[in-house]
Design a protein around this nucleic acid. Sequence first.
DNA 1: GACGGCATGTAAGTCGTTACATGATTTG
DNA 2: CAAATCATGTAACGACTTACATGCCGTC
Lengths: 184, 184
Amino acid sequence: MEFTSVTPVVLGILHLGPRSGYDIKGMVDNSTRFFWGASYGQIYPELRRLAQAGLVKGESAPRGARRRTVYRLTPKGRRALRDWLRSPSVDWDIKDEGFLKLFFAGALDRDEALELVRRLRERHEHDLLRLSEVEPRAKGHGGFPYLVLQWGIGLNRWTADWCAQLERSLLEDEERTRHAEPAR
Amino acid sequence: MEFTSVTPVVLGILHLGPRSGYDIKGMVDNSTRFFWGASYGQIYPELRRLAQAGLVKGESAPRGARRRTVYRLTPKGRRALRDWLRSPSVDWDIKDEGFLKLFFAGALDRDEALELVRRLRERHEHDLLRLSEVEPRAKGHGGFPYLVLQWGIGLNRWTADWCAQLERSLLEDEERTRHAEPAR
DNA sequence: GACGGCATGTAAGTCGTTACATGATTTG
DNA sequence: CAAATCATGTAACGACTTACATGCCGTC
Protein backbone atom coordinates (compact mmCIF):
# COMPACT_ATOMS: atom_id res chain seq x y z
CA MET A 1 0.00 0.00 0.00
CA GLU A 2 1.68 3.14 -1.26
CA PHE A 3 0.99 6.28 0.72
CA THR A 4 -0.16 9.24 -1.31
CA SER A 5 -0.43 12.71 0.16
CA VAL A 6 -4.02 12.15 1.23
CA THR A 7 -3.41 8.81 2.95
CA PRO A 8 -2.07 10.10 6.28
CA VAL A 9 -4.85 12.66 6.82
CA VAL A 10 -7.53 10.09 6.17
CA LEU A 11 -5.95 7.51 8.46
CA GLY A 12 -5.22 10.15 11.08
CA ILE A 13 -8.75 11.47 11.18
CA LEU A 14 -10.25 8.01 11.23
CA HIS A 15 -8.02 7.30 14.21
CA LEU A 16 -10.01 9.95 16.08
CA GLY A 17 -13.18 8.00 15.37
CA PRO A 18 -15.37 6.54 12.58
CA ARG A 19 -16.28 9.06 9.90
CA SER A 20 -17.90 9.38 6.48
CA GLY A 21 -15.97 10.88 3.57
CA TYR A 22 -18.02 14.00 3.98
CA ASP A 23 -17.14 14.19 7.68
CA ILE A 24 -13.44 13.81 6.88
CA LYS A 25 -13.56 16.66 4.40
CA GLY A 26 -15.33 18.81 6.99
CA MET A 27 -12.75 18.07 9.67
CA VAL A 28 -9.84 18.74 7.34
CA ASP A 29 -11.39 22.07 6.36
CA ASN A 30 -11.51 23.36 9.86
CA SER A 31 -8.40 21.84 11.35
CA THR A 32 -5.51 20.63 9.21
CA ARG A 33 -6.28 22.78 6.18
CA PHE A 34 -3.75 25.41 7.31
CA PHE A 35 -0.89 22.99 6.76
CA TRP A 36 -2.49 20.09 4.89
CA GLY A 37 -5.57 20.24 2.69
CA ALA A 38 -7.62 17.55 0.97
CA SER A 39 -10.39 17.60 -1.62
CA TYR A 40 -13.34 15.28 -2.29
CA GLY A 41 -11.57 14.27 -5.47
CA GLN A 42 -8.86 12.78 -3.29
CA ILE A 43 -10.81 11.58 -0.27
CA TYR A 44 -13.47 9.38 -1.86
CA PRO A 45 -11.19 7.42 -4.18
CA GLU A 46 -8.70 7.07 -1.32
CA LEU A 47 -11.29 5.59 1.04
CA ARG A 48 -12.07 2.92 -1.54
CA ARG A 49 -8.42 2.20 -2.07
CA LEU A 50 -7.80 1.93 1.68
CA ALA A 51 -10.81 -0.35 2.09
CA GLN A 52 -9.55 -2.59 -0.68
CA ALA A 53 -6.13 -2.77 0.99
CA GLY A 54 -7.78 -3.57 4.33
CA LEU A 55 -6.59 -0.48 6.22
CA VAL A 56 -10.13 0.77 6.76
CA LYS A 57 -13.53 -0.85 6.79
CA GLY A 58 -16.64 0.91 5.53
CA GLU A 59 -20.16 0.14 6.63
CA SER A 60 -23.43 1.56 5.48
CA ALA A 61 -24.91 4.01 7.98
CA PRO A 62 -27.75 5.84 6.21
CA ARG A 63 -29.48 8.82 7.78
CA GLY A 64 -33.07 8.42 6.69
CA ALA A 65 -33.13 7.53 3.01
CA ARG A 66 -29.80 9.26 2.46
CA ARG A 67 -27.12 6.70 1.82
CA ARG A 68 -23.99 7.15 3.88
CA THR A 69 -20.89 5.10 4.55
CA VAL A 70 -18.81 5.46 7.68
CA TYR A 71 -15.30 4.14 7.75
CA ARG A 72 -13.23 2.97 10.69
CA LEU A 73 -9.59 1.97 11.00
CA THR A 74 -8.72 -1.70 11.05
CA PRO A 75 -5.80 -2.89 13.21
CA LYS A 76 -3.77 -2.94 10.00
CA GLY A 77 -4.74 0.68 9.34
CA ARG A 78 -3.77 1.70 12.87
CA ARG A 79 -0.40 0.06 12.35
CA ALA A 80 0.10 1.86 9.04
CA LEU A 81 -0.68 5.20 10.69
CA ARG A 82 1.79 4.57 13.50
CA ASP A 83 4.46 3.45 11.05
CA TRP A 84 4.03 6.68 9.12
CA LEU A 85 4.16 8.71 12.33
CA ARG A 86 7.41 7.01 13.28
CA SER A 87 9.02 7.53 9.88
CA PRO A 88 11.63 10.30 9.96
CA SER A 89 10.36 12.28 6.93
CA VAL A 90 9.32 15.87 7.57
CA ASP A 91 8.77 17.09 4.02
CA TRP A 92 7.21 20.42 3.40
CA ASP A 93 6.21 22.55 0.47
CA ILE A 94 5.04 26.11 0.72
CA LYS A 95 3.52 28.45 -1.82
CA ASP A 96 3.00 31.87 -0.34
CA GLU A 97 2.07 34.59 -2.78
CA GLY A 98 2.24 37.27 -0.10
CA PHE A 99 5.92 36.74 0.60
CA LEU A 100 6.72 36.29 -3.07
CA LYS A 101 5.24 39.74 -3.60
CA LEU A 102 7.18 41.16 -0.69
CA PHE A 103 10.36 39.66 -2.12
CA PHE A 104 9.88 41.65 -5.33
CA ALA A 105 8.38 44.76 -3.72
CA GLY A 106 11.43 46.74 -4.82
CA ALA A 107 9.70 47.10 -8.19
CA LEU A 108 7.07 49.30 -6.55
CA ASP A 109 7.08 52.83 -5.10
CA ARG A 110 7.52 53.03 -1.38
CA ASP A 111 3.86 53.74 -0.65
CA GLU A 112 2.72 50.86 -2.83
CA ALA A 113 5.17 48.55 -1.08
CA LEU A 114 3.80 49.78 2.23
CA GLU A 115 0.29 48.93 1.06
CA LEU A 116 1.49 45.45 0.14
CA VAL A 117 2.89 44.90 3.63
CA ARG A 118 -0.34 46.17 5.13
CA ARG A 119 -2.32 43.61 3.15
CA LEU A 120 0.07 40.88 4.24
CA ARG A 121 -0.42 41.86 7.87
CA GLU A 122 -4.18 41.92 7.45
CA ARG A 123 -4.14 38.44 6.01
CA HIS A 124 -2.29 37.11 9.03
CA GLU A 125 -4.53 39.02 11.41
CA HIS A 126 -7.50 37.53 9.63
CA ASP A 127 -6.14 33.99 9.95
CA LEU A 128 -5.25 34.69 13.57
CA LEU A 129 -8.84 35.69 14.26
CA ARG A 130 -10.23 32.58 12.54
CA LEU A 131 -7.97 30.35 14.59
CA SER A 132 -8.72 32.20 17.82
CA GLU A 133 -12.42 31.64 17.23
CA VAL A 134 -12.08 27.87 17.28
CA GLU A 135 -9.61 27.92 20.17
CA PRO A 136 -12.13 27.60 23.01
CA ARG A 137 -13.78 24.57 21.44
CA ALA A 138 -10.42 22.96 20.70
CA LYS A 139 -9.24 23.59 24.25
CA GLY A 140 -11.98 21.29 25.46
CA HIS A 141 -10.66 18.42 23.36
CA GLY A 142 -7.05 19.18 24.20
CA GLY A 143 -4.26 16.89 23.05
CA PHE A 144 -2.00 17.38 20.07
CA PRO A 145 -4.57 19.00 17.78
CA TYR A 146 -4.94 21.75 20.38
CA LEU A 147 -1.16 22.16 20.61
CA VAL A 148 -0.91 22.51 16.85
CA LEU A 149 -3.68 25.10 16.92
CA GLN A 150 -1.72 27.09 19.48
CA TRP A 151 1.31 26.91 17.22
CA GLY A 152 -0.78 28.28 14.35
CA ILE A 153 -2.07 31.10 16.49
CA GLY A 154 1.41 31.98 17.71
CA LEU A 155 2.88 31.82 14.24
CA ASN A 156 0.28 34.12 12.74
CA ARG A 157 0.63 36.54 15.60
CA TRP A 158 4.41 36.57 15.20
CA THR A 159 4.18 37.23 11.48
CA ALA A 160 1.50 39.90 11.89
CA ASP A 161 3.73 41.66 14.43
CA TRP A 162 6.68 41.37 12.10
CA CYS A 163 4.66 43.03 9.34
CA ALA A 164 3.53 45.81 11.68
CA GLN A 165 7.12 46.54 12.60
CA LEU A 166 8.15 46.56 8.96
CA GLU A 167 5.34 49.04 8.24
CA ARG A 168 6.65 51.35 10.95
CA SER A 169 10.19 51.19 9.66
CA LEU A 170 9.06 51.87 6.08
CA LEU A 171 7.08 54.89 7.30
CA GLU A 172 10.12 56.20 9.16
CA ASP A 173 12.23 55.85 6.03
CA GLU A 174 9.69 57.80 4.09
CA GLU A 175 9.63 60.62 6.59
CA ARG A 176 13.39 60.80 6.77
CA THR A 177 13.58 61.07 2.98
CA ARG A 178 10.90 63.76 2.91
CA HIS A 179 13.00 65.82 5.30
CA ALA A 180 16.23 65.29 3.42
CA GLU A 181 14.66 66.09 0.08
CA PRO A 182 11.77 68.48 0.85
CA ALA A 183 8.94 69.82 -1.30
CA ARG A 184 9.47 67.69 -4.39
CA MET B 1 -1.38 36.80 -21.08
CA GLU B 2 -2.56 34.52 -18.34
CA PHE B 3 -0.32 34.28 -15.30
CA THR B 4 0.58 30.79 -14.24
CA SER B 5 2.29 30.05 -10.96
CA VAL B 6 5.72 30.39 -12.51
CA THR B 7 5.08 33.72 -14.24
CA PRO B 8 5.61 36.06 -11.28
CA VAL B 9 8.91 34.48 -10.16
CA VAL B 10 10.34 34.71 -13.64
CA LEU B 11 9.27 38.31 -14.14
CA GLY B 12 10.37 39.22 -10.64
CA ILE B 13 13.84 37.76 -11.01
CA LEU B 14 14.30 39.30 -14.43
CA HIS B 15 13.41 42.62 -12.84
CA LEU B 16 16.58 42.28 -10.78
CA GLY B 17 18.60 42.01 -13.99
CA PRO B 18 18.97 40.00 -17.25
CA ARG B 19 19.30 36.28 -16.69
CA SER B 20 19.35 32.95 -18.51
CA GLY B 21 16.86 30.23 -17.68
CA TYR B 22 19.62 28.42 -15.87
CA ASP B 23 20.42 31.53 -13.83
CA ILE B 24 16.77 31.93 -12.89
CA LYS B 25 16.57 28.36 -11.64
CA GLY B 26 19.73 28.93 -9.61
CA MET B 27 18.40 32.08 -8.00
CA VAL B 28 15.06 30.51 -7.17
CA ASP B 29 16.84 27.57 -5.56
CA ASN B 30 18.71 29.70 -3.11
CA SER B 31 16.24 32.45 -2.39
CA THR B 32 12.51 32.04 -3.03
CA ARG B 33 12.48 28.25 -2.85
CA PHE B 34 11.39 28.38 0.79
CA PHE B 35 8.05 29.89 -0.15
CA TRP B 36 7.93 29.54 -3.95
CA GLY B 37 9.77 26.95 -6.02
CA ALA B 38 10.15 26.48 -9.77
CA SER B 39 11.56 23.69 -11.98
CA TYR B 40 13.25 23.73 -15.38
CA GLY B 41 10.13 22.08 -16.75
CA GLN B 42 8.26 25.25 -15.89
CA ILE B 43 10.92 27.91 -16.47
CA TYR B 44 12.03 27.18 -20.03
CA PRO B 45 8.57 26.87 -21.58
CA GLU B 46 7.49 29.95 -19.64
CA LEU B 47 10.37 32.06 -20.98
CA ARG B 48 9.28 31.23 -24.53
CA ARG B 49 5.70 32.02 -23.76
CA LEU B 50 6.64 35.34 -22.18
CA ALA B 51 8.87 36.21 -25.15
CA GLN B 52 6.05 35.44 -27.55
CA ALA B 53 3.72 37.68 -25.56
CA GLY B 54 6.32 40.46 -25.55
CA LEU B 55 6.85 40.61 -21.77
CA VAL B 56 10.49 39.56 -22.04
CA LYS B 57 13.06 39.67 -24.78
CA GLY B 58 15.72 37.02 -25.23
CA GLU B 59 19.05 37.51 -26.87
CA SER B 60 21.81 35.11 -27.64
CA ALA B 61 24.74 35.46 -25.25
CA PRO B 62 26.93 32.41 -25.72
CA ARG B 63 29.87 31.67 -23.44
CA GLY B 64 32.44 30.22 -25.77
CA ALA B 65 30.75 27.71 -28.03
CA ARG B 66 28.08 27.04 -25.41
CA ARG B 67 24.81 28.54 -26.56
CA ARG B 68 23.07 30.65 -24.01
CA THR B 69 20.10 33.00 -24.06
CA VAL B 70 19.67 35.81 -21.59
CA TYR B 71 16.27 37.38 -21.13
CA ARG B 72 15.39 40.87 -19.99
CA LEU B 73 12.08 42.50 -19.11
CA THR B 74 10.42 44.70 -21.71
CA PRO B 75 8.46 47.77 -20.55
CA LYS B 76 5.34 45.66 -21.02
CA GLY B 77 6.83 42.98 -18.79
CA ARG B 78 7.73 45.52 -16.13
CA ARG B 79 4.14 46.76 -16.21
CA ALA B 80 2.79 43.21 -15.89
CA LEU B 81 4.99 42.60 -12.85
CA ARG B 82 3.86 45.81 -11.17
CA ASP B 83 0.21 45.03 -11.92
CA TRP B 84 0.60 41.66 -10.28
CA LEU B 85 2.36 43.20 -7.28
CA ARG B 86 -0.52 45.65 -6.88
CA SER B 87 -3.20 42.99 -7.15
CA PRO B 88 -4.77 42.20 -3.78
CA SER B 89 -4.44 38.40 -3.96
CA VAL B 90 -2.35 36.74 -1.26
CA ASP B 91 -3.00 33.08 -1.94
CA TRP B 92 -1.06 30.49 -0.09
CA ASP B 93 -0.87 26.73 0.10
CA ILE B 94 1.15 24.89 2.66
CA LYS B 95 1.98 21.20 2.97
CA ASP B 96 3.87 20.49 6.16
CA GLU B 97 4.30 16.85 7.02
CA GLY B 98 5.92 17.66 10.35
CA PHE B 99 2.87 19.41 11.74
CA LEU B 100 0.51 16.89 10.24
CA LYS B 101 2.39 14.26 12.20
CA LEU B 102 2.28 16.35 15.34
CA PHE B 103 -1.47 16.77 14.88
CA PHE B 104 -1.93 13.00 15.00
CA ALA B 105 0.81 12.29 17.54
CA GLY B 106 -1.84 11.12 20.00
CA ALA B 107 -1.69 7.76 18.22
CA LEU B 108 1.84 7.27 19.58
CA ASP B 109 3.30 6.60 23.02
CA ARG B 110 4.57 9.62 24.86
CA ASP B 111 8.22 8.94 24.19
CA GLU B 112 7.60 8.39 20.50
CA ALA B 113 5.67 11.64 20.35
CA LEU B 114 8.57 13.34 22.08
CA GLU B 115 10.93 11.96 19.46
CA LEU B 116 8.65 13.35 16.75
CA VAL B 117 8.78 16.82 18.28
CA ARG B 118 12.53 16.57 18.56
CA ARG B 119 12.80 15.81 14.84
CA LEU B 120 10.51 18.73 14.05
CA ARG B 121 12.73 21.06 16.08
CA GLU B 122 15.84 19.74 14.37
CA ARG B 123 14.33 20.39 10.98
CA HIS B 124 13.66 24.02 11.86
CA GLU B 125 17.09 24.40 13.39
CA HIS B 126 18.56 22.98 10.22
CA ASP B 127 16.64 25.43 8.02
CA LEU B 128 17.56 28.24 10.40
CA LEU B 129 21.22 27.39 9.96
CA ARG B 130 20.94 27.28 6.17
CA LEU B 131 19.29 30.67 6.09
CA SER B 132 21.77 32.16 8.55
CA GLU B 133 24.59 31.06 6.30
CA VAL B 134 23.41 33.16 3.37
CA GLU B 135 22.47 36.09 5.61
CA PRO B 136 25.79 37.98 5.42
CA ARG B 137 25.81 37.90 1.62
CA ALA B 138 22.15 38.96 1.44
CA LYS B 139 22.78 41.80 3.86
CA GLY B 140 25.12 43.36 1.31
CA HIS B 141 22.36 43.47 -1.29
CA GLY B 142 19.75 44.63 1.18
CA GLY B 143 16.25 45.58 0.05
CA PHE B 144 13.16 43.43 0.23
CA PRO B 145 14.84 40.09 -0.48
CA TYR B 146 16.94 40.65 2.63
CA LEU B 147 13.86 41.55 4.67
CA VAL B 148 12.14 38.36 3.56
CA LEU B 149 15.22 36.37 4.54
CA GLN B 150 15.09 37.90 8.00
CA TRP B 151 11.45 36.90 8.25
CA GLY B 152 12.40 33.34 7.33
CA ILE B 153 15.12 33.30 9.95
CA GLY B 154 12.84 34.69 12.62
CA LEU B 155 10.05 32.30 11.77
CA ASN B 156 12.26 29.23 11.96
CA ARG B 157 13.77 30.39 15.20
CA TRP B 158 10.33 31.00 16.67
CA THR B 159 9.10 27.56 15.67
CA ALA B 160 12.27 25.82 16.86
CA ASP B 161 11.85 27.53 20.25
CA TRP B 162 8.21 26.52 20.34
CA CYS B 163 9.20 22.91 19.76
CA ALA B 164 11.86 23.07 22.46
CA GLN B 165 9.31 24.34 24.95
CA LEU B 166 6.89 21.60 23.98
CA GLU B 167 9.62 19.03 24.52
CA ARG B 168 10.21 20.35 28.03
CA SER B 169 6.53 20.26 28.89
CA LEU B 170 6.16 16.70 27.56
CA LEU B 171 9.13 15.63 29.66
CA GLU B 172 7.61 17.21 32.75
CA ASP B 173 4.36 15.37 32.12
CA GLU B 174 6.19 12.14 31.89
CA GLU B 175 8.03 12.70 35.14
CA ARG B 176 4.86 13.69 36.94
CA THR B 177 3.17 10.51 35.75
CA ARG B 178 6.12 8.39 36.78
CA HIS B 179 5.83 9.77 40.31
CA ALA B 180 2.09 9.31 40.50
CA GLU B 181 2.29 5.78 39.16
CA PRO B 182 5.69 4.48 40.22
CA ALA B 183 7.59 1.32 39.38
CA ARG B 184 5.41 0.02 36.58
C1' DG C 1 39.67 11.44 -19.64
C1' DA C 2 36.32 11.58 -15.96
C1' DC C 3 33.63 14.47 -13.29
C1' DG C 4 31.09 18.39 -11.96
C1' DG C 5 29.02 22.45 -13.40
C1' DC C 6 26.97 25.21 -17.27
C1' DA C 7 23.06 25.30 -20.45
C1' DT C 8 18.74 24.06 -22.83
C1' DG C 9 15.04 21.49 -23.54
C1' DT C 10 11.05 17.74 -23.67
C1' DA C 11 8.07 13.71 -22.60
C1' DA C 12 5.76 11.07 -19.50
C1' DG C 13 3.53 10.69 -15.76
C1' DT C 14 1.62 12.05 -11.22
C1' DC C 15 -0.96 14.90 -8.42
C1' DG C 16 -4.65 17.73 -7.21
C1' DT C 17 -8.38 21.09 -8.03
C1' DT C 18 -12.67 22.33 -9.96
C1' DA C 19 -16.83 21.85 -11.71
C1' DC C 20 -20.40 19.20 -12.34
C1' DA C 21 -24.04 15.57 -11.54
C1' DT C 22 -27.25 13.44 -8.48
C1' DG C 23 -30.37 13.31 -4.89
C1' DA C 24 -32.14 13.56 0.20
C1' DT C 25 -32.96 16.44 4.25
C1' DT C 26 -33.46 20.43 7.15
C1' DT C 27 -34.55 25.16 8.05
C1' DG C 28 -36.27 29.73 7.32
C1' DC D 1 -40.93 26.20 -1.45
C1' DA D 2 -36.26 27.94 -1.78
C1' DA D 3 -31.84 27.65 -0.02
C1' DA D 4 -28.46 25.51 2.61
C1' DT D 5 -26.49 21.40 4.02
C1' DC D 6 -25.74 16.44 3.89
C1' DA D 7 -23.71 12.93 0.98
C1' DT D 8 -21.23 10.57 -2.80
C1' DG D 9 -18.94 10.49 -6.76
C1' DT D 10 -16.40 11.46 -11.51
C1' DA D 11 -14.34 13.82 -15.60
C1' DA D 12 -11.60 17.24 -17.32
C1' DC D 13 -8.17 20.00 -16.82
C1' DG D 14 -4.09 22.21 -15.17
C1' DA D 15 0.12 22.15 -12.33
C1' DC D 16 4.33 20.20 -11.35
C1' DT D 17 8.07 16.76 -11.00
C1' DT D 18 11.21 13.63 -12.84
C1' DA D 19 13.93 11.62 -15.84
C1' DC D 20 16.13 11.85 -19.75
C1' DA D 21 18.70 13.71 -23.87
C1' DT D 22 22.19 16.68 -25.64
C1' DG D 23 26.53 18.92 -25.57
C1' DC D 24 30.27 22.37 -23.96
C1' DC D 25 33.60 23.81 -20.53
C1' DG D 26 37.12 23.72 -16.81
C1' DT D 27 39.90 21.18 -13.71
C1' DC D 28 41.90 17.43 -11.20
